[in-house]
Nucleic acid binder design. Structure first.
Lengths: 147, 147
DNA sequence: GTAGATGCAAACGCTTTGCCGCTTA
DNA sequence: TAAGCGGCAAAGCGTTTGCATCTAC
């Protein structure tokens, strides 16, 4: 098998994840890592995300909007919160699900795991309520689905 | 505004959703409605899904695997269960989240809603454990994420 | 008869891959 | 100096759109 080398691009991409408060999109990574590595190509980002995923350093998170993001692996059981205004996603240690191992629901569905995304407003967007939604945000439809 | 007409294609697509136990993929719809409407085109399915979504008859559901599905609107607050073996998705009335309206988490995140997907084994796949995973199933990665 | 709907194929946008020169070790 | 790696551009793939034809009303 091929040995992996330490490159400026890969180092910077990893650093970006170490500084993140929540899962990042491919564009997030390109923009942030690109600050330190001018000329960074999108294909390089994709290749490294996959490589880091396969090597167990990153894992993917797909939000209910369909957007794929990535975060460091090994953060333990946690969920995510997405701001309906700015689209930012942060990690939450909070978990409301307390099902005994081996729980089977009526109908015979044996539960082995779960994934939750919470929606709402982040502190920034709550404070300045005049803040406009990011134009890049495509989660408007979520407004209707809120509990 | 344009008036919508009743076409065989649209009627059949709606009927397919009325008979579904859970959210359906675009391919599901094409295959099932195509049985009654030979020659049904994928573009027609996409156009009708969007149209029915815009008119409030359907809503989209995006699973943690990234797969987009659709289901009838107005089913009330519910969540989904996906079988890790066969990939089937069913509705669950069960909801483990009991947060008072207006709950704000530490850090100042105001929760307005949530979305949950449970994973596990459906009754069919539990029974005949020899059942092979669907070749079309791309949620193998979920195995690692199970709580 | 007319505007909406369908089916086909082209267009799109995001992701992946091929190619080749560059870089790490 | 060799093999992994990055950048660019082409290829893929699922979804959307343009267009001519068909059809509900």
């Amino acid at each position: 098998m091929p040995t992996t080398r330490t490159t400026r691009q890969r180092e910077e991409i990893l650093r970006v994840f170490e500084q993140a408060k929540g899962p990042l999109s491919v564009q997030d990574v390109l923009e942030r890592a690109g600050l330190k590595v001018p000329g960074l190509g999108i294909a390089t980002v994709y290749r490294n995300l996959k490589l880091l995923q396969d090597s167990g350093q990153l894992e993917s998170v797909i939000l209910p909007s369909g957007e794929a993001r990535f975060e460091r692996q090994g953060l333990g059981h946690h969920h995510h919160f997405q701001c309906l205004n700015c689209g930012e996603v942060v990690d939450l240690d909070f978990c409301p699900v307390h099902l005994p191992k081996g729980t089977t629901l009526p109908g015979g569905y044996a539960i082995e795991g779960h994934e939750i995304t919470f929606y709402g407003r982040c502190p920034n967007c709550l404070e300045g309520s005049e803040a406009k939604p990011s134009s890049a945000l495509k989660i408007g439809y979520l407004e209707e689905r809120v509990e």
